[in-house]
Computed example of a mutant assay.
Amino acid sequence: MPAMNPYLNFNGNAEEAFNFYKSVFGGDFTMIGRFKDMPEEYRGPESEWNKIMHISLPIKGGNILMGSDSPEHMGKVIVGNHMHISLHPETKEEADKLFNGLSAGGNVVMPMADAFWGAYFGMFVDRFGISWMINVDTQQK
């Protein structure tokens, strides 16, 4: 079974929200990436460069709370698109099986592909309206 973690989306206040969560849960962020840290072709407008592209906060029990700010060109975050279930299988083969099975009858947002952060990644909304992300860390494989 792959690891399964909540992934929260925000309208520009992800850093504030995660500092609050850190004050409650404790611990330290394992990653804080900003849009300015992305390769130039993915950055978007300069007004968004300091927003959070990805942040991770380990929570007791082996869980990780993750999140990001939603870029303006992707639309405002509203209830219904503000949370994803993020799966972390160990292999590309397992990722493809999960992606193909869960996305059947749904809407593929990003097909599974190698990503610039060293992962095999894809996103979709299943036929029931649930948003999913699948991420295989290929740097350790």
Rank of each mutant, 00 (worst) to 15 (best):
K97T: 08
D137P: 02
D69Y: 02
P89Q: 06
P39T: 09
I52G: 11
V24L: 10
I134Y: 00
F124Q: 01
G67F: 03
G105W: 04
K76L: 09
D96P: 00
E40F: 08
N81H: 00
T91W: 00
A3E: 15
W117L: 08
D126M: 08
P89G: 03
T138N: 12
L65D: 04
E15Y: 13
V108Y: 06
K97R: 13
A17W: 05
G75W: 01
G75Y: 00
F116C: 11
D126P: 04
S68T: 10
G106I: 02
M83V: 15
S68V: 12
L57H: 00
H82C: 14
G67I: 09
G129N: 11
Q139Y: 04
F29K: 00
G12D: 01
D137G: 09
E41F: 15
M112K: 06
M38R: 12
F18H: 02
W117D: 14
R127I: 10
F10S: 02
S70V: 14
N9G: 13
E90W: 03
E46T: 12
G122A: 11
I52C: 12
E93H: 04
R43F: 04
R34T: 11
K76D: 08
G75R: 02
N50L: 08
E41T: 13
D126S: 07
V79W: 12
G122H: 10
L98H: 09
P6R: 03
R34C: 06
Y120I: 07
S103T: 00
P71H: 01
H54L: 07
F25S: 02
E72L: 13
E16N: 13
K76Q: 10
T138D: 11
P6A: 03
I130M: 07
M38G: 10
D37S: 08
N19S: 05
N100T: 03
N5I: 09
D126R: 03
V125C: 14
F124P: 00
I134D: 04
R43W: 07
F18R: 00
V79L: 15
I32K: 06
V24F: 05
F29Y: 07
E93F: 02
G105Y: 07
S56Y: 04
G67A: 09
G12T: 02
P39I: 08
P89D: 07
R127K: 15
F18Y: 06
G101D: 05
F35W: 09
A113H: 14
D137L: 08
Y7S: 11
W117E: 10
S47F: 10
F99T: 00
N13D: 15
P71K: 03
M74V: 04
G27E: 04
W117N: 11
N50R: 05
L98K: 02
R34K: 13
Q139H: 11
M31L: 13
S131F: 09
G106Q: 00
F128I: 12
N9L: 15
I85F: 11
Q139D: 13
I59Q: 01
